[in-house]
Design a protein around this nucleic acid. Sequence first.
DNA 1: GATGAATGAGTTTTCATTCAT
DNA 2: TATGAATGAAAACTCATTCAT
Lengths: 199, 199, 199, 199
Amino acid sequence: MTKTRRTESETVRREQILNAARKVLDTKGYDATTVSDIVKEAGVAQGTFYLYFESKKDAVMELGRQVMGEMTRRLTAAQRSDATFEEQLRLVLRTGFQVADQNADLCRLMHVGEESAGRKIKQAVGVAENPFMLSMVAMFRSAIERGETFMCDPEVAVRLLHRMVGGALQEAHLYGDKEDTKCIAETMEELVVRAFVKR
Amino acid sequence: MTKTRRTESETVRREQILNAARKVLDTKGYDATTVSDIVKEAGVAQGTFYLYFESKKDAVMELGRQVMGEMTRRLTAAQRSDATFEEQLRLVLRTGFQVADQNADLCRLMHVGEESAGRKIKQAVGVAENPFMLSMVAMFRSAIERGETFMCDPEVAVRLLHRMVGGALQEAHLYGDKEDTKCIAETMEELVVRAFVKR
Amino acid sequence: MTKTRRTESETVRREQILNAARKVLDTKGYDATTVSDIVKEAGVAQGTFYLYFESKKDAVMELGRQVMGEMTRRLTAAQRSDATFEEQLRLVLRTGFQVADQNADLCRLMHVGEESAGRKIKQAVGVAENPFMLSMVAMFRSAIERGETFMCDPEVAVRLLHRMVGGALQEAHLYGDKEDTKCIAETMEELVVRAFVKR
Amino acid sequence: MTKTRRTESETVRREQILNAARKVLDTKGYDATTVSDIVKEAGVAQGTFYLYFESKKDAVMELGRQVMGEMTRRLTAAQRSDATFEEQLRLVLRTGFQVADQNADLCRLMHVGEESAGRKIKQAVGVAENPFMLSMVAMFRSAIERGETFMCDPEVAVRLLHRMVGGALQEAHLYGDKEDTKCIAETMEELVVRAFVKR
DNA sequence: GATGAATGAGTTTTCATTCAT
DNA sequence: TATGAATGAAAACTCATTCAT
């Protein structure tokens, strides 16, 4: 009747629950996922969940932040200021696809923009305050100055790029197999470069 | 005490409920919307809903089908076989944005790819069996033959185009005001043409 | 598995649930009583409770209002302006005890003043806005003018009388049997008259 | 990370927890108070509570016993057998109000007669086995013999007096400010003397 | 057809209590 | 002794769906 009581470090336990949440969310989507599902998957008691998270939404927002954080970290590490706009753009796309490959499940949640709960999540991963988005805007601005891209509002451009790539990632991971994903990534990169880089 | 019993034709009553559903779904999203909300908005009884729809999901799927149908109808009407690929592409984009403007609410539901219910909806308006998507694939195929676009898998291209435009529509309608929407539409059209049309 | 669906008038169903609540509250007290207990006793489904009441507290407050209403109705009916203060006082006490006899269970809840939920209930049955309490204050005021009672703040006097009688009612119904109750009522009447009536 | 382990004598630790419990119970009432609240206030760990008390109820009952003990101690110390009944009565009332002033919080719990937990508490401080109540009964008995009060069942008289005073204390401490409390105490004393003392 | 009261399984959340450390 | 993470039973409340009228 009683499960063995495991006492792991707080961080480990958090991660254990988050991983379980990730797995279930991947299978069932945000709304169909219950806290009960998550704790069953994690192998902990119902109450334990609430020891680490205030609510289901809280946990999902944490997951969202994790992915964006990972993305930002990787991009920051890879950025080279002497690269051309095209090189920078390709780097962003590749890094994005790489992180997405490793977080396929979460990517599906990243663009939840239609559901009430999704809006809240969206805010947490929001656009304006997002350091990654801001650095992208800066990248576009200097590209416009240097004439490496066509004239446009850099913020609108970044928002569209974000959506385009996000859409492609979803398409790749929702419907595609491994091979398909690669093809989509390559096609996407080509399309984006054609769309944004002035030659 | 009791509401007047209206005896309208079956189709009218269906439409009445669907319009109510559309309005509520727009405001609250799929999961937060209750059947109770819908019937209250429609001014009919709880049970009446189930005379016209098998379930909540059924009604929402019907809404999805409506928009796609509208889109297909408009595009078919507008298509001219003697137009260039670029002209065709621009037409598709403009029509898409037009329909989306008139169905802003539903557009939010159309790209729900991550929600449980969303998947079901998705299937109903799915890609492979979708006549609109198929005609787009044909359009790309002949553009490749005529050398009006660069070499690629036409199906992948259509899927990506669909996602890119869908993403832009979401961005436009979720966050943008009227002015913003116009700017996004124009920028998007330019980007897509640059991305797909070989000049 | 399924219970027969009864469709009674709204008022009847409300009363059915309130009676069940009364019975369970009597046995288990406010906090130990669950909505689940109440619906089981009433023989209706969990959800049905929430069709008629917003919450457990809401239902209990309704019960409180019922008793106070009954008390006020009876006292108003019995009041005669030509009676002496002593006669009026005795009438109030007797009526109070009578109503209490018929609502023994609820009387226990009437003085719930210590529990958080109780405070809310208290407010609903509160002192200042209570027409019965106000008419009592008026009664005391004119008795002071006519010299039929000793000088005091009439509001304080009424609050104390209310508590004293309430306490006696509780004592009578919590611990007493039938005989005991009668004895307590008589003793109480004597004490109150001695305490308040100047001779 | 871990709190300093304090090694105080068992009694000190008990008192520390009881004081915390008293403070929290005062603010939130029995049911709204959680063991977690108490230990947080006391600055000890969750488990420590259960080293000193069997349950939440156990701790609250202990508090109840403390107040009654204090009351009995004070009254016994103050009692002078050569005093008249009126003097004795006034002493009891004043002492009662004094102890109550110093234990305002607990007084709210003492007359919880309707709450589940309250009943248990009640039993612990119950009437029949209570030395204080017994000495009061004796006081009344000899007053009757000496003709200092009117004829009545002394036990019923004590129970009613207890309730009357208890009710007044509640009224005073639940709703009254400092000034109000004094006024209530004085009015109450006057009323009780009029009610019980034959002149 | 139309109604809307009734249903009850399912959800989130709380918290007294336990026990490995 | 002391700790506090973990437990899980139980609570309040929701809502898609049914069905007697």
